[in-house]
C-alpha cells in the first residue's frame, strides 16, 4: 500500500475549490451482483446493500457504488482496505467473483463550491444540471481525455475518481475549469 496519495492532497483554492482527496481505500468487486452470497459479503463488509443500476449508497464509514452490471466499487478508509479485501475474498472463496484492492491505482478528487457542477460539466459529456443529475447517482464518463467516475458527495460538492497515472492531468484540467472568473452561470 502506498504511503502517499497521488498528489499528496494538492489543493487549488478559489470560489470553486479543487482538492485531491488523499489516501482512500478502494476495492473492486466483480461477480454476479444478483448472487445472494455477493450481497451478503457486501453487507457483512460495509453494512450496506448492493446498489441498483448507477446508484451509490453511503453509510457511516463506507460507500458502495454500482460501476457496471458485474462490478462494484467499495470505498472505505485507507487502512481498512486490506482487511476488508481479505474478509470479502474469504466469504466469496467458492463464488465466481474477484475482490481486488485498487486503492493505489486510483486518485480521488473533490470539487466544491456553488459552481462545482459547472466546473465538472465543462469537461464531461454529461448533463450535470440539478434536474438531471442528483445525489445517489454514480456516473462513469470521460473527463476531457481520460475516464473518470463522478458522484455528488454534498450539496455543492462533487467527488471524482480517476486512474492514479493521470491524476496530475485531471487536477490540471479541474483547476483550469474551476478558476475564478471561469464560471459560466448556466446552471
Amino acid at each position: 500500500m502506498s504511503e502517499v496519495s497521488a498528489l499528496m492532497g494538492a489543493v487549488a483554492e478559489g470560489r470553486t475549490r479543487v482538492e485531491e482527496g488523499g489516501l482512500v481505500g478502494m476495492i473492486t468487486l466483480r461477480g454476479d451482483l444478483d448472487s445472494a452470497r455477493v450481497k451478503a459479503a457486501v453487507k457483512d463488509a460495509t453494512g450496506l446493500d448492493v446498489p441498483g443500476q448507477r446508484q451509490v449508497v453511503t453509510g457511516d464509514d463506507a460507500s458502495v457504488a454500482w460501476m457496471s452490471p458485474d462490478e462494484l466499487l467499495i470505498v472505505v478508509a485507507h487502512d481498512q482496505a486490506p482487511g476488508t479485501v481479505a474478509a470479502m475474498a474469504q466469504a466469496l472463496a467458492d463464488e465466481f467473483a474477484t475482490v481486488a484492492n485498487v486503492s493505489d491505482a486510483r486518485a480521488l478528487f473533490r470539487v466544491s463550491g456553488p459552481s462545482a457542477r459547472e466546473a465538472v460539466a465543462k469537461l464531461a459529456p454529461v448533463d450535470l444540471h440539478p434536474a438531471s443529475f442528483g445525489a445517489g447517482e454514480m456516473r462513469r464518463t470521460r473527463l476531457a481525455q481520460v475516464p473518470a467516475a463522478i458522484w455528488l458527495s454534498g450539496d455543492d460538492e462533487l467527488s471524482l475518481i480517476c486512474f492514479r497515472s493521470v491524476a496530475k492531468y485531471v487536477f490540471g484540467i479541474l483547476e483550469l475549469s474551476a478558476a475564478d472568473g471561469a464560471e459560466v452561470g448556466i446552471f
Binding site: 443500476q53 448507477r54 457496471s68 452490471p69 459529456p125 456516473r139 462513469r140 464518463t141 470521460r142
Partner: peptide
Amino acid sequence: PCCGVMADETEL
C-alpha cells in the same frame, strides 16, 4: 443497454 446511460459518441 448495460447501464442505461445516454452516451455521447465520445464516450464510446
